[in-house]
């Protein structure tokens, strides 16, 4: 398969600190790839390397076939980047903001207007084009940021924590836009300077970073990052499958006692309180025995069990199991 983003063994250190420590990444057209991890895991640095804002210490990366070290400008022309704290000029209108981003990215006066209108229509901000950006709601600002990253019609879109701290309703809208973007081929011919010989109507690739596990589930493929490395990669389904049958949900009284009893079981690897219930992670293949054994132990320990059943694992369970 022809990957739009292809990186091998990316490395970047700041001082003695290895921010990115040997990352391989391949993202296909039409794919949304999620980089998931905590602050300081190396997500932002990875994106900055790919966009050419930081110089690689080691490794190789290409965007749409352009080497980011030797053909930086061509690679950048294909890339849209929305930084974590993307800045918009609050005193300019929506259209003026987008125009600015279009012009600094080299769109000519003939190109920018139709392009801006098209992109504002896409993100649903067409009717607000003359409103000063300072008067937009948080969600609209988000969409404007996306529009400014998309105005050059890039084949590769890099989004750095676009939804952190954002209203779930807005997040849902934002994701629908991203999914729409990758599922519809580009309708118009590529940029005049994008003469890299690619076909019309190619699909877009997206890398999105997020600290939210539930958001990771919306990506086609997910890479868990920790300490500058990708510690696991796969579709959400594949990743969850590693724990299938190993998560139990337990309800009963008193919760504290149940917690200690459950943690004492030899096949229980981890116990986590979730308000009025507990989640247990079990050793591979021990679900049957635990389901039989634990109710008796709780009874003889003096607790009351109201419910014990298997639940499907979530990505957070997977991440924790991997990092413990």
């Amino acid at each position: 398969m022809q990957y739009l983003i292809h990186a091998t063994n990316l490395k970047k250190s700041f001082g003695g600190n290895r921010a990115v420590d040997g990352i391989d990444l391949s993202v296909a057209p039409g794919e949304i790839y999620g980089l998931v991890g905590a602050d300081g895991a190396g997500k932002t640095t990875t994106l900055r390397l790919l966009v050419g804002a930081l110089r690689l210490d080691e490794g190789q990366a290409s965007v749409c076939g352009y080497d980011i070290l030797r053909q930086t400008e061509q690679a950048r022309a294909q890339t849209g980047y929305l930084s974590q704290r993307f800045s918009l000029y609050e005193d300019l209108t929506v259209l003026e903001n987008i125009r600015f981003f279009a012009e600094v990215r080299g769109l000519t006066s003939k190109e920018w207007l139709p392009r801006c209108l098209e992109i504002l229509d896409f993100v649903g901000l067409a009717e607000f084009r003359d409103r000063p950006a300072g008067q937009l709601s948080g969600g609209m600002k988000q969409k404007m940021g996306l529009a400014s990253a998309l105005v050059t019609r890039p084949r590769v879109l890099l989004l750095d924590e676009p939804t952190t701290g954002v209203d779930p309703v807005t997040r849902q809208d934002f994701w629908q836009l991203v999914i729409k973007l990758v599922s519809t081929p580009l309708r118009l011919p590529p940029n005049s300077e994008n003469l890299g010989g690619e076909k019309e109507g190619g699909q877009v690739s997206v890398i999105i970073t997020t600290p939210y596990m539930d958001e990771a589930a919306r990506c086609h493929r997910v890479g868990f990052m920790k300490g500058g490395r990708i510690i696991a990669e796969g579709t959400p389904g594949e990743l969850r499958a590693t724990l299938t049958g190993r998560i139990l949900e337990l309800r009963g009284q008193p919760l504290n006692l149940l917690r200690h009893l459950a943690a004492g079981d030899e096949d229980v690897e981890d116990v986590q309180a979730f308000g009025d219930r507990l989640h247990l992670r079990l050793r591979q293949g021990s679900a049957g025995q635990v389901l039989k054994r634990l109710p008796q132990r709780i009874k003889s320990g003096g607790g009351t069990l109201s419910d014990l059943r298997q639940v499907p694992p979530v990505l957070e369970d997977v991440f924790i199991a991997l990092t413990e």
Binding site: G37, A38, D39, A41, T164, G165, P211, M213, K226, N256, Q272, A273, E316, F319, I320, T323, E324
Partner: peptide, 21 residues
């Protein structure tokens, strides 16, 4: 817990539950 990885988040919640106890 903002900006903290899920493992540290869970450990943190364990602490909160101990305090509540």
């Amino acid at each position: 817990t903002s900006g903290v990885d899920p493992t540290a988040r869970r450990a943190f919640w364990d602490l909160i539950y101990e305090l509540a106890e």
